[in-house]
Amino acid sequence: MKHCCFHNLFLAIALALPLLAAAATPDGAALYRQHCAVCHGSDGSGGVGVPLSLPDFLAVASDGYLARTIRKGRPGRVMPAFPGLSDAEIRAIVAHVRGFADVAAPSYGQAPLKGDAARGAKLFARHCAACHGDRGQGGKGTGVTFSRPRGAPVMAPSLANPGFQAAVSDAMLKATLLRGRHGTPMPSIRELGLDPARADDLVAFVRTLRVPPPPPLADDEPHIIRYDSPYDVEQTLEALKQAVIGRNFRVIRVQPLDQGLVPEGQEDGRRIILYFCSFSFLNEALAIDPRVGLFLPCRVTVVETADGVQVMSINPKHLSHLFNNTELDEACERMYRLYNEIMEEATF
């Protein structure tokens, strides 16, 4: 008996060890592929996210900066936070990102620099605001942005973002300004014609920049928009089409909810989808975030229930919340109003 238990314990350890070992040294490449490659590219060359592989970036980005960026993300600027990754997993991802370029990792002291923020503010307005925004809020769009050629400008990141401010040290900010980032529009301050001695002033000013993180979704925000229609399904659809066309949208398609899932001719006429869109709307949306396909085309569904006909759509504000993109939230606020106008007009 004793022997048998001992044997069991041994077996358990033998079985568990490889698992424990795997948990102790996570696979950075696999984690990067799972969590980061979709936005930053398999090789770190950028996409929806900014490039991570540039030598000028990796030469100034400390391991601590990379780790804090992964942990906290960039609230409202697409880059998600990863609260669920362990410290060991984050270290493994950082090591993998380091491998994108053959440059040594810098290490910085945490001491704040003693520049003159007021002087920095003037320099910022003159030399930096055109790209980074007057309040350091960053350029529009995402990363290298949807389907632009790779050589095209990278959008300027938000310097006022609370995630960036929490991740970056004064010393790393200074190193970034002195070096610039070749392969992106970001110049060194020498290239901007500034005396490198002014770097501390700029750093002091950048430190004062702050935009609040996006507010959380209101608890009572309904996840759909719904109106009762006084008409039957056919009349409601007609009224919806008029309302859509009246706002310069094009009706793309009208189809039963179950079309393509039941044999032709057997679709349920009580549940009909109306799809609509417009070029300008689509272009504007894609420029904000290439992932907006999940909202498109615009859709309103007409449903006949026991209590009468209803028109309904998803609440775009609600869905937008998953994207961590303040610009998209604003666009979805407009889309929310548009849906309401159309449905209200059609059911009046």
Binding site: V48, S147, R150, R271, P290, L294, T301, M312, L319, L322
Partner: peptide
């Protein structure tokens, strides 16, 4: 109330030689 969410969908678009796919969870 869930009718607007079905059928479920996956968005798919080209990025250079790669392809990006995405879908929403139901966490919200």
């Amino acid at each position: 109330d869930l009718i607007p969410y079905v059928p479920i969908k996956i968005a798919i678009f080209a990025e250079q030689d790669n392809t990006i796919l995405l879908s929403s969870s139901f966490s919200h």
